[in-house]
Design a protein around this nucleic acid. Structure first.
Length: 514
RNA sequence: GGGGCGUUAGCUCAGCUGGUAGAGCAGCGGACUUUUAAUCCGUUUGUCGUGGGUUCGAUCCCCGCACGCCCUACCA
């Protein structure tokens, strides 16, 4: 054919190694044999009726005296992970989505007319091939439940070799970039993502049980809002307008509360155009919920129960181990004010100092952080908290009394207008959740947006935009409401004892491959 | 964005402060009818991440770049 085709072949060749080349040759032979037999190289007519884990659970406890008379016929399929050929008899370990089971394959037991050819073909099948078997359950000499195979088929030829069978996949980069390989060979990785699924479904059930309505709000926003963060910017061609990937669903969910959905929640992705770290992925999952006629005190109780429920659903216990240290989610979560937390974890500061803006400003500079120019006392206290106390909050702790100036969507305290009815939940030194009594005074909200715009003009790139439609919605009247967002990835990190957010995201963001 | 460490066969890893590379697994050939990372015999495979520099000579020393991991910063 053409030049381009030759180029393609060259590209393939660069990626090839002799192992892959051997396998391609085997596949070629398989195709030819299939053609002669009127069959196909990639059949899809085999339907397994059993799975490894269930077979072990149901029959693993019996010995051959029980199993033999039953003559339990099973059919299974999966990836061949181990193969031990010993002349005329062989063992192969097959892995399906539930676990592994061993096959015992001997020419004598194969019922097919050309059993010799099938057995010889099997000897050349590779680790990683998807195979299917039918046979009878029995126990080997060493007591392992196995299938004495009467029918054996190759369903899918695998062209690429798996990682080394004992050490598995060690290269972090490959684990992230080629998660499919990681999942094939790492039980631990599979367990992490199964736990993640359990966490999410437990949270969903918990919300539904508490009369919340699950909703989906836009991911593409004309005005980014609901958080202080840099958005990804994109463009809608037909409308010829700039759009933003959402940084938070908050303003839409509150519009729904205005609309009369008094309890709503959404579990989905937020996108923030910021740095990557062991705790940050550009897209991350939030469970955000709003409940009319509740406040931040109610939210703290509710969030606590929600997290505890999720942990138990995923691990069976509310007492966990995180990075070698016990994490007890069963006890009531602590509550501390920002100043209280500093006093507890950095007792060198006096109350007088903590209420002295000039002192705080100077102290924060010592930590190498520059507080923003117009930071008030509350913001300075918060900055010092972040430097001194935050990372020490191992046991679940709600920090309360966030200053108004850093909480533009939260309801101010009736007692002290400088602070809001807001909390953040810290566990293992990390922020896990953020919630507050919602600001439902449309005029106050408009004034807060104006203040944010001023901050933006003054150079605060993360200050919020003025969202006129959101103000309009509030002007129709939003009932008093409490709302909270839980960072699902970080919660799953905690519950699965994962050190990096990338370990709990199936396909974490990576730089383009070299 | 700043700092540290890393990159050697398909995989897991060795490689002596410089003489162009090894092991195990996988593969290929052979033996073997109860193995468990099967075993035993034989055997193939490398732009030593990449581009420069120093040197008679570089996987090794120096510099740049790419990618990765960790710490740090912004943040959830």
């Amino acid at each position: 054919m053409s030049v381009s085709n030759e180029q393609n072949n060259e590209v393939v060749a660069v990626d090839e190694n002799h192992v892959i080349a051997e396998r391609r040759e085997k596949l070629k032979a398989i195709r030819e044999t299939a053609k002669l037999n009127g069959s196909v190289a990639f059949p899809n007519d085999f339907k397994p009726e059993h799975q490894a884990a269930a077979l072990h659970a149901e029959f693993g406890g019996f010995d051959n005296e029980v199993l033999d008379p039953k003559a339990l016929h099973v059919s299974i399929a999966g990836r061949m992970m181990l193969k031990r050929v010993m002349g005329k008899a062989s063992f192969a370990t097959v892995q399906d989505s539930t676990g592994r089971i061993q096959l015992f394959i001997s020419k004598d037991n194969l019922t097919d007319t050309n059993s010799e050819a099938i057995y010889d073909a099997f000897k050349h099948w590779d680790l990683g091939d998807i195979i299917a078997a039918k046979g009878v359950l029995f126990k080997t000499k060493t007591g392992e439940l196995s299938v004495k195979v009467s029918e054996l088929r190759l369903l899918t030829k695998s062209l690429r070799p798996l990682p080394e069978k004992f050490h598995g996949l060690q290269d972090q980069e490959v684990k992230y970039r080629q998660r499919y390989v990681d999942l094939i060979v790492s039980e631990e990785t599979r367990a992490t993502f199964i736990a993640r699924s359990k966490v999410v479904s437990a949270i969903r059930s918990f919300m539904l049980e508490n009369q919340f309505l699950e909703v989906e709000t836009p991911m593409l926003h004309p005005i980014p809002g609901g958080a202080s963060a840099k958005p990804f910017i994109t463009h809608h061609n037909a409308l010829d307008m700039q759009m933003y990937m959402r940084i938070a669903p908050e303003l839409y969910l509150k519009r729904l509360v205005v609309g009369g959905f008094e309890r709503v929640f959404e579990v989905n992705r937020n996108f923030r155009n910021e740095g990557l770290s062991v705790r940050h992925n550009p897209e991350f999952t939030m469970m955000e919920f709003y409940a009319a006629y509740t406040d931040y005190l109610w939210l703290m109780d509710f969030t606590e129960r929600c997290i505890r429920t999720a942990a138990i659903a995923a691990t069976g216990s509310a007492v966990l181990q995180y990075q070698g240290r016990e994490l007890d989610l069963s006890k009531p979560f602590q509550r501390l004010t920002i100043v209280g937390a500093i006093q507890k974890y950095a007792p060198q500061y006096t109350l007088g100092q903590l209420n002295n803006a000039d002192f705080l400003r100077a102290e924060i500079l010592k930590f190498g952080t520059k507080p923003f120019d117009h930071a008030g006392l509350g913001a300075l206290q918060l900055a010092l908290f972040e430097e001194t106390a935050e990372s020490q909050l191992w046991e679940p702790t709600y920090i309360i009394d966030y200053p108004v100036e850093v909480s533009p969507l939260a309801r101010a305290s009736d007692i002290n207008p400088e602070i809001t009815e807001r909390f953040e939940l810290f566990v293992c030194g990390r922020e896990i959740a953020n919630g507050f009594s919602e600001l439902n005074d449309a005029e106050d909200q408009a004034a807060r947006f104006h203040a944010q715009m001023k901050a933006k003009e003054a150079g605060d790139h993360e200050a919020m935009y003025y969202d006129a439609d959101f103000i309009r919605a509030l002007e129709y009247g939003m009932p008093p409401t409490g709302g909270c967002g839980i960072g699902i990835d970080r919660l799953v990190m905690m519950i699965t004892d994962s050190a990096s957010i990338r370990d709990v995201i199936l396909f974490p963001h990576m730089r383009a491959e070299a």
